[in-house]
């Protein structure tokens, strides 16, 4: 690993100040991608800014919709997850399990236990690995990414492989979404890396809109699948997936599988997401 200057900050504002003055500073969240990348000398930030002690970035909050100060019984919960919340914390959150257990299951199947104890949702979303799990969930849930500067809709945020709408000096502080009426995630992990070869997140919002997002398979990162969305809007069931044409165009071909193989995996994973 190349030399670097380590900073531990107590707030995103403090991190912002360092980002503004250092030559090439990087934010360190859980570090489960950044540290291995630095070890391989594929990244050489002049400064590393550790957010693990920053206040207010950790935890899951669920707020119920209120009308005239009265909590509505029809649900309408908003889930907010702090950027520095670890995968293990999301997986084990009892309140989240009550309103949307699929998110807990997704978090509980990222990497391995040691990675889940350290890796964070903010780090995953900032990195936008084309085979990461959270981007599919956030896109399918029409989530909002909160930063120190603004709020960004997931559909504007994820811009391709490792590409996001984040600008210089921008730090993710939380993500939030409306708990859907139904939803699930099917992932076929690569047997060696455990990253998704195809991961499909299906969500039906409380107003009936169905969104389907695919990770791991696209040549350009996470994407929504219009054909699956149309079929599942008409009939929200695994059987509805059968009639959908999933094209291999734009999908990845590598030593692990061809684009046609991944196209088939998308259908199989969509069914598992609905099972």
């Amino acid at each position: 690993m190349y030399e670097t200057n380590f900073h531990s900050v107590s707030s995103p504002q403090e991190a912002e100040a360092i980002l503004a003055t250092a030559t090439d500073a990087k934010i360190l969240a859980g570090g489960q991608t950044l540290i291995p990348t630095m070890k391989q000398r594929l990244a050489a930030p002049s400064d590393v800014i550790d957010l693990s002690r920053a206040e207010g970035l950790r935890g899951v909050t669920i707020t119920k919709r209120k009308v005239m100060g009265v909590i509505k019984a029809d649900g309408g919960e908003t889930v907010t997850i702090g950027a520095m919340t670890t995968h293990a914390e999301v997986a084990a959150n009892a309140e989240l399990a009550e309103v949307f257990p699929a998110m807990c299951r997704l978090a509980g199947n990222i990497g391995d236990p040691a990675v889940r104890h350290r890796g964070t949702i903010g780090g995953s979303v900032a990195n936008n690995d084309p085979a990461a799990d959270y981007p599919a969930a956030l896109l399918a849930l029409a989530a909002t990414i909160h930063t120190n500067k603004r709020e960004i809709a997931a559909s504007d945020y994820f811009q391709g492989m490792f590409e996001t709408a984040l600008q210089e000096g921008e730090i993710i502080t939380a993500v939030s979404f409306q708990a859907p009426a139904a939803g699930g995630y099917g992932k076929f992990p690569n047997p060696a890396s455990r990253y998704a070869m195809a991961g499909v997140f299906v969500a039906r919002s409380k107003d009936g809109a169905v969104r389907v997002a695919v990770t791991g398979a696209g040549e350009n990162g996470v994407f929504r699948h219009a054909g699956l969305e149309a079929a599942l809007t008409a009939d929200y069931s695994a059987n509805a997936v059968d009639g959908v044409e999933v094209s291999a165009e734009g999908l990845m071909s590598d030593l692990h599988g061809t684009a046609a193989y991944r196209a088939n995996l998308i259908k199989v994973m969509a069914k598992r997401a609905l099972a």
Partner: peptide, 11 residues
């Protein structure tokens, strides 16, 4: 449990 090869001592 954490991987001590995947975190900085400073953290």
């Amino acid at each position: 449990a954490m991987k001590s090869c995947t975190m900085l001592a400073a953290s």
